[in-house]
């Protein structure tokens, strides 16, 4: 008897379960999968959203570009969804390109980042980039190029550090983190469409709490990567009389605090390979020249950063032990401008 009742119970529940469900079901080939999301603003003050969508059937065309406008990004995305032939699935978006006039507005940019982070569909892993050109132009330029895939724009950022050390890929969650961080600012890559290749990397914008403070060139960006202890292999440097390749790098930072004045001693070790050199150039000369160049470059950036109170190196993180949590909130304005950095470069031959 009891067993029978249990059985009825199971049957009832199974029917209930079978009756519910069916909201998320849509076959993958009935979904449109955009890869790149471009955000800009029209002259009328509305948001304009551009999507780059791969085309699967057609051989001659790899992707199409769809745009929509709305008062908010959500409404613009919703409009595209309404007008699209298929259901649009935003979960595969890998790159988000923001137009510069939006990016230069701190409030707008902060809102965009917060929206992207809060959105359940758009993954927070997707990378961010800023462009000075028209977003639509950048996204549609892919169709004129030969031998590219629909995912080429994303692949551009995903070559891997060993292949293209200058490219600084910044995911949404890191930008979001920098909105709240008091000790570390972030660099967002700057791109434009190329003539033969899909994209050209132009450098990075430095953001402090969502506000663009400065713009760095690719070789400067590379130095910042080194200082953030990201291994730099394969970088080729031209010294005029010789060109070398960095084969390994490591950095040691040692913070100290004297009379509330922070100072940092840092040792950068670089191993290099000499690729080509003019006649009569000794190893010693190459090493000295490289040391000089890197130090000069570093102090140049540091000076600019200290003037704009922007800690792109994340030096403040090193002082977590020395300065209390609440004090550290004022790192950028109170401590960082007075920071003394004792920067030493040591170059070794492989």
């Amino acid at each position: 008897m009891k067993n029978n009742r249990l059985f009825q119970f199971i049957v009832v529940f199974l029917t209930v379960i079978l009756l519910c469900g069916c909201w998320d079901i849509k076959d993958i080939n009935k979904r449109t999968i955009p890869l790149v999301l471009g955000i800009s603003k029209t002259n009328g003050g509305e948001y304009k959203v551009t999507l780059q969508i791969p085309v699967l059937k057609n051989e001659s065309q790899v992707s199409k570009v769809v745009t929509g406008t709305g008062e908010t990004i959500t409404s613009a995305l919703g409009k595209i969804r309404t007008n699209s032939e298929n259901a649009i699935d935003y979960t595969q978006i890998r790159l988000i390109v923001v137009q510069n006039h939006l990016a230069h507005n701190q409030k707008e940019f902060t809102n965009i980042v917060k929206f992207l982070m809060g959105s359940e569909e758009i993954p927070s892993r997707s990378l961010m980039a800023i462009t000075d050109e028209n977003v639509e132009g950048v996204l549609s330029s892919i169709n004129d190029k030969l031998g590219v895939h629909a995912s080429s724009i994303y692949d551009f950022f995903n070559k891997g550090a060993d292949w293209a050390p200058e490219i600084f890929s910044t995911p949404v969650w890191e930008v979001y983190r920098s909105l709240f961080s008091s000790t570390k600012d972030i660099a967002v890559p700057l791109i434009r469409s190329g003539r033969n290749t899909v994209l050209i990397f132009e450098g990075s914008d430095i953001l402090k709490k969502g506000e663009i403070m400065d713009r760095l060139k690719p070789e400067e960006i590379q130095l910042i990567r080194v200082l953030q202890n990201k291994n730099e292999k394969g970088k080729i440097e031209s010294l005029g009389f010789a060109s070398i390749m960095v084969s390994n790098s490591s950095i040691r930072l040692k913070p100290s605090l004297n009379n509330d004045k922070p100072s940092l001693s840092s040792n950068l070790n670089i191993k290099i390979n000499v690729l080509e050199r003019n006649d009569g150039v000794t190893n010693k000369k190459i090493m000295e020249e490289l040391e000089r160049i890197i130090e000069e470059r570093f102090f140049h950036i540091l000076k600019r950063m200290q003037e704009s109170h922007t800690d792109i190196f994340g030096f403040g993180q090193e002082f977590q032990q020395l300065i209390s949590y609440n004090e550290l909130k004022n790192w950028r304005d109170e401590y960082f401008p007075d920071l003394k950095v004792n920067f030493e470069v040591e170059v070794n031959m492989e």
Binding site: D24, I25, D27, I28, N29, I33, L35, L56, Q92, S151
Partner: peptide, 20 residues
Amino acid sequence: SVNPEVFKLDLALFVAKSRE
């Protein structure tokens, strides 16, 4: 049909193509 977002991008495009 329900969770294609789990696939990596290339795989997703491949599967979508095979079901076209």
